[in-house]
Design a binder for these strands. Structure first.
Lengths: 241, 241
DNA sequence: TATTTGATCTTTACGATGTAAAGATGAGGG
DNA sequence: CCCTCATCTTTACATCGTAAAGATCAAATA
């Protein structure tokens, strides 16, 4: 949109202690979020994260820049620095938000499941559903290279996600999975579940399953394909004669 | 490495028709690739692709910029434009190269396989091995968002990759897979194979399997985990008592 | 209460990138 | 022999991330 950020506009001529800048900022802010905006903003950190989420949904991963987020929040382009350090910091915190949303969606997924099969399919379906509903967020969480997992918030949220997965797999296998040691079979089961759902999601979001979906019986949805993928055996001919 | 591209260096003072630029370029070129470099270069397109591959392996995905590639090839930063249009073009052609390497690796993988099990594991292992040996390339092929699949070279190479996979799955299921129609079971089998290996590879490259690998019996390699993942059944308790 | 302090936000500046447009170059066809 | 046009270089510009210095104000301090 070539807004060009008004460089060297007020700094011309006499070096007056600039008075009219605060009202301008206030007007800008009022137009975007709420009404209360007492100069120091009070809650810029949260506002920036929400702005980032909005930018991400509107303009995708490529449009999610530090400056765009600052613009969306109505603050100067350097304001995020103080709260997140750099772009990696912002992306990491945003990814943490995503993981928490994700974990919540997973946790509440198996609530209405009755049969064991439904329960087994609930989580994977919720996984793919979240990614389809929030492809940008999923991209931040799993596609970006600029994530700093040493940040506690991100580390914890991602860890919780893994723990939930491992736990679900353990439940399905009807055995306790101890925290610090795994048998090869247990590890393989977890890796398989995660790889399968994550790979499926990635390929689906990238449109790489279109080729398959187009050749399937008329009107087969990705969800149906996912179900079939999760339920049939790994090798050999299909169950029928 | 702030090289800063020597802007406004020769363009100062008198506007002489610049003579000394060709020798300089030749010297630069000689230092990097071969010796023959007759101004119009002759084969810039290929040279740029090879330069891109070098940059990718040296500096990773983040370092792979149009200007860096031009620098590596010893030409001006705008030279790639004429051959690839824009960054998307270069990335797409490079991804096509990657897919061809990848397909070749897959094709020659099952040569030394004897038993059916070995044959079934050969391709997935080759898949992961290629990604581990060329993580940058794999990133270009599967992580980047800026790919233009309408480019014939990329479309063909990616298509061939998919066809090889579908074919292998069909062979394993001991049935012919017709080109234009698939049963749900067939589609599920293909999607499962691809999702599993692709997901595993992604998680492995992103270091997200460290958590699992660390809890496994001392010295378990990713390869071993992959094998176990591919061979054991999907649900239920492990084979043993 | 008056002053200082420190966190927060803005300005300014710089190098790097992608891309467009105009200028130089030289190989090959007329 | 000249001229055309694909190829490559220069120049220019908007945008981005980041650093550094200045402005502002709430709250602690004297």
């Amino acid at each position: 949109m070539g807004k060009s950020e008004i460089r060297t506009a007020t700094a011309r001529g006499a070096r007056t202690p600039k008075k009219a800048s605060a009202p301008a900022r206030l007007a800008r802010r009022t137009a975007s979020v709420k009404a209360e905006a007492p100069y120091h903003h009070g809650a810029l950190r949260e506002a920036l994260l929400q702005a980032a989420e909005r930018v991400l949904e509107r303009d995708g991963l490529a449009g999610l820049t530090l400056r765009a987020v600052a613009r969306e929040a109505g603050v100067s382009h350097a304001a995020p620095t103080h709260h997140f350090g750099d772009l990696t910091g912002l992306l990491s915190e945003l990814a943490a938000v995503g993981f928490r949303q994700f974990n919540a969606a997973m946790a509440s997924s198996s609530d209405s499941a009755t049969t064991p099969i439904e329960r087994a399919l609930a989580r994977p379906k919720a996984y793919v559903a979240y990614a389809q509903a929030h492809p940008g967020m999923y991209g931040i969480m799993f596609r970006t290279e600029r994530l700093d997992y040493s940040r506690p918030s991100l580390h914890e949220a991602a860890e919780a996600s893994f723990a939930g997965l491992a736990n679900a797999v353990g439940m399905m296998r009807q055995e306790q999975i101890s925290g610090d040691a795994l048998t090869l079979h247990q590890g393989a089961a977890i890796a398989r579940a995660w790889s399968m759902v994550h790979g499926f999601t990635m390929l689906l979001l990238d449109g790489r399953l279109e080729d398959i979906l187009g050749r399937l019986p008329e009107g087969t949805t990705p969800e149906r394909l996912l179900e079939a993928m999760l339920m049939s055996p790994v090798t050999g001919k299909p169950p029928g004669p």
